[in-house]
C-alpha cells in the first residue's frame, strides 16, 4: 500500500485524478482510496498533520512493504528554481531534526527542510513547509525510516501571497512522473523479506498452540534456521497427527527440531 499525504485539497487534486481515487468517508478527514493507494489531506500545520497521520495509521496499520510519501508545495530561497521538486533528507523542526533514510538512487536535488509554524514571507536559509515535522513524528512510529519520503515542490521564494490554488494544482500535476519514479525506486529498497508464506505462518501458529511458549520459540528458531540455510526447501512438518500425551508431544518436537537443524 502507498500512503500519500498532502496538506491542501489543491495539492491532492492531480493525484486523485491521476490515480482515479474515490472519496471515502470513514475518517473525519478528506480521504481517498484507490488501487493500492490511500490519500489523506491533512490540513495545514504541524499538529493538524500529526493528528491526521495518526488517524490514517490507525485506520490501516502499515506493513513493512508499505510506503508513505508526503508531497506538496514549499517556499524556498531563490537558489531553488520555482517548480523544482526537492527530496528532503533532513526536517528541522522546532527543537529537533528528523532524518528520513534515502537508500535509493534518484535524480532529485536533496535538501533540508524547515518545518515552521506560520507562512514565511522573509528570506530563510532553507526551504520551509508547515507539516513535515508532524508527519514524520506520527509516521515514524509505524514505518521504518526508509519507507517514508518527502517531496516538496518549490512554489515561491518566500512570497506565499503569490501562491494560488491553480498554481498548486499545476505544480503537483507537473511532478506526477517524479512521484511515480520515486515510488518505483522506494519499492526496490530491499526490506526485511518475509521468510514464510502466509500458509506456512498459519501452520507454524497452529503447531505452536500444542506446545509451551518456550517450546514454541525453539520451534520457530529451528524453522528460521532451516529456511535461511536453504531458502527454497519446503518446511518438512511431520504428517502424523500431534500426540495427545505431553511426553510424546515433546519427543516429537525434539525430533523435528533436530531434523530442522541437522
Amino acid at each position: 500500500m502507498i500512503y500519500l499525504t498532502c496538506a491542501l485539497d489543491a495539492e491532492a487534486r492531480p493525484l486523485i485524478e491521476h490515480y482515479r481515487l474515490k472519496r471515502d468517508y470513514t475518517l473525519p478527514y478528506t480521504f481517498y482510496k484507490g488501487d493500492g493507494i490511500l490519500l489523506l489531506v491533512t490540513g495545514i500545520g504541524r499538529s493538524n498533520a500529526m493528528l491526521a497521520l495518526s488517524a490514517l495509521m490507525g485506520y490501516r496499520i502499515p506493513t513493512k512493504d508499505d510506503l508513505l510519501i508526503n508531497i506538496g508545495i514549499c517556499g524556498a530561497p531563490d537558489t531553488y528554481r520555482l517548480g523544482e521538486a526537492l527530496l528532503i533528507h533532513q526536517i528541522m523542526d522546532t527543537d529537533r531534526s528528523y532524518y528520513p533514510d534515502i537508500l535509493y538512487p534518484h535524480p532529485l536535488r536533496e535538501t533540508g527542510l524547515m518545518c515552521v509554524d506560520t507562512p514565511v514571507s522573509s528570506p530563510c536559509l532553507s526551504p520551509v513547509d508547515m507539516e513535515s515535522g508532524g508527519i514524520f513524528q506520527a509516521a515514524s512510529r509505524f514505518l521504518k525510516l526508509h519507507q517514508m519520503a518527502f517531496i516538496k515542490i518549490v512554489s515561491d521564494h518566500f512570497e506565499p501571497h503569490k501562491v494560488t490554488k491553480e498554481g498548486a494544482i499545476h505544480l503537483v500535476k507537473s511532478h506526477i512522473h517524479t512521484l511515480e519514479s520515486l515510488i518505483a525506486s522506494l519499492q526496490k529498497v530491499s526490506s526485511d523479506p518475509s521468510l514464510f508464506t502466509p500458509e506456512e505462518m498459519e501452520k507454524i501458529g497452529e503447531w505452536k498452540t500444542h506446545f509451551t511458549v518456550s517450546q514454541g520459540v525453539k520451534l520457530e528458531e529451528a524453522l528460521f534456521y532451516f529456511r535461511l540455510k536453504i531458502p527454497k526447501r519446503p518446511l518438512p512438518f511431520p504428517t502424523d497427527p500431534i500426540p495427545t500425551s505431553k511426553r510424546e508431544r515433546s519427543t516429537l518436537l525434539e525430533t523435528f527440531i533436530a531434523h530442522l537443524t541437522a
Partner: peptide, 23 residues
C-alpha cells in the same frame, strides 16, 4: 547534511539494518 550530534542520525529509532546495509 549538517547535524548537531551523531546520535540524532545513528541512534534514530526504526532504522532497518538490513535495508541500510545496501546503502
Amino acid at each position: 547534511v549538517l547535524i548537531d550530534h551523531y546520535k540524532e542520525v545513528f541512534n534514530r529509532p526504526n532504522q532497518s539494518f538490513a535495508a541500510q546495509s545496501d546503502s
